[in-house]
Design a protein around this nucleic acid. Sequence first.
DNA 1: ATAGTGGGTTGGATTTTCCAACCCACAGGA
DNA 2: TCCTGTGGGTTGGAAAATCCAACCCACTAT
Lengths: 139, 139
Amino acid sequence: MARTCSIANALEVIGERWSLLALREVLFGVRRFDQIAANTGASRDILAVRLRKLVDAGVLEKQQYEAHPPRYEYVLTDAGRELHKVLLMLLDWGDRHVTQGPPPLVWEHSCGSRLHADVVCTSCGEPVRPENLRPSTRP
Amino acid sequence: MARTCSIANALEVIGERWSLLALREVLFGVRRFDQIAANTGASRDILAVRLRKLVDAGVLEKQQYEAHPPRYEYVLTDAGRELHKVLLMLLDWGDRHVTQGPPPLVWEHSCGSRLHADVVCTSCGEPVRPENLRPSTRP
DNA sequence: ATAGTGGGTTGGATTTTCCAACCCACAGGA
DNA sequence: TCCTGTGGGTTGGAAAATCCAACCCACTAT
């Protein structure tokens, strides 16, 4: 039987094609269907399916911003905002190991510097390195 | 035109179905085709395609471990090992926002504690929060 | 009256994915 | 010798997902 783990569970929600790119756009402040479609390159029908699923999963919310005609825009829930860590790590990995040349997009941190993020162990404060971790299943 | 960014580039390499689960297995020390197939649930033909792509992309390497008959196992390259950060953030997000009940799988850090990771800004050392970052395109 | 906008939905073609079965080279046991 | 098992795949055909262009509807602005 396949291993149950929260990576697999997370990917059930956000692992389909276009989902993470749509969430990137919303995190960047793009809220509207047409702009999300244009900026991601997703086809409109699939994007509609993805956004519905993300709303159902509690990652996005539809907010009405106009009454007549009714118009909605997409905003992140708390759960959606927490995805910034996943996106940041993906961006970092892509910059280092996939993208040729300088990064086409950088993030700025409120401290004023261009953002470069480390993953550190909450207990000991040390940066996490792959050789220092191992999986263990719960009893 | 769609936005170019390293998130999209990264997803070109590792964003297809089963790729990240296969990499999770290799990071966990599972190296062989049959075991990766069993632990992920991927069908064998698709898994073969994914592993080939990951090898071509420089994320995995095939290493011969037996001469007659020739047998290979999959190991991570440096680029592949760097994906532990992405997987860790996905696991954390899944634990918090998708998985019901206690996490089915936890990681232990070499410092002895159950791993809980923070993302911190390399410059100022503060934990990164979504409201403190914004995208900026390079000139 | 006409054009444009926002947020979709529809139909049909194309691509992916799934699944079970098969293959091949070799090893071990009866 | 024959039979069984293992590791790492490949193949064929059915089922599902995706792509694309076109359409729709309610409204606003010109």
